[in-house]
Design a protein around this nucleic acid. Sequence first.
DNA 1: ATTTTTGCAAACCTTTTGCATGGAA
DNA 2: TTCCATGCAAAAGGTTTGCAAAAAT
Lengths: 136, 136
Amino acid sequence: MRPSINNRDTAPRRALAELIASRHGHFTAADLIADASQRRVKVGRATVFRTLDLLTDQGSLERLDLPSGEHAYVSCAPREHHHHVVCRSCGQSVEVTDQGLQAVVQSIGARSGYRIESHRLELYGLCPDCQKESGQ
Amino acid sequence: MRPSINNRDTAPRRALAELIASRHGHFTAADLIADASQRRVKVGRATVFRTLDLLTDQGSLERLDLPSGEHAYVSCAPREHHHHVVCRSCGQSVEVTDQGLQAVVQSIGARSGYRIESHRLELYGLCPDCQKESGQ
DNA sequence: ATTTTTGCAAACCTTTTGCATGGAA
DNA sequence: TTCCATGCAAAAGGTTTGCAAAAAT
């Protein structure tokens, strides 16, 4: 499924955008489906997946592969390459820019002989709030 | 499922170890199941998954989340923290050590305020062989 | 003898697809 | 009007589970 060229303004998409906006931290497709049914917003399962793909293609969402193997999404400003730091407790995440990672990637390319085309860095830990709550 | 404490020497496990050893690049659970049935090795689907989990817990395998969303595994020496560079064409992968990444991670922790507990870097590109084959 | 592991089949969960209908442009 | 997007339900994957039988210690 790659509908990336279509982009109409529809009620389901607006509704999903709101559900996503009111979310904290990362969320799964199932989360959105649950949200929708709870708020009595009528959107089909398929539409949720299609919209998530769409937003991901646009760069408004990024898909994380949690250590558990779950696929989760986080919203992000559709801008240049960045990575996410994810709180393992509340799921809140922040975007971080490369900051020296570029050099590491280059060095790995040189040492391995691979021509590196892309990379993905995900960091997990405790966000400031959860550090406090968990008795520091 | 976390059987990590049991570790008996059984025929299915030995068979799977061989199938894995004779694999190049990364592979999925489905790949192993196909290999087994092709070579007429009798192992149940469930056993494949259970063994993959076991080996992953032991550190002999690592699970990759390919950009496509597939879960694949690569064998690796169960040693210290490392990352994988994966060929997007043949799936071959090599392990690389941190080499400066540690500093990047620390700096991200400092800037974000998160207490970083773990991270995961996956690199994708073309291995030396596939670079040649693909017209340089 | 005891405990772990296996195989099987069914259950589960997540994601995708086909297709007719409804809505946007 | 003309396409695109939706919903539905069915299909397709991938992974897990319960349990009795088989194998390992």
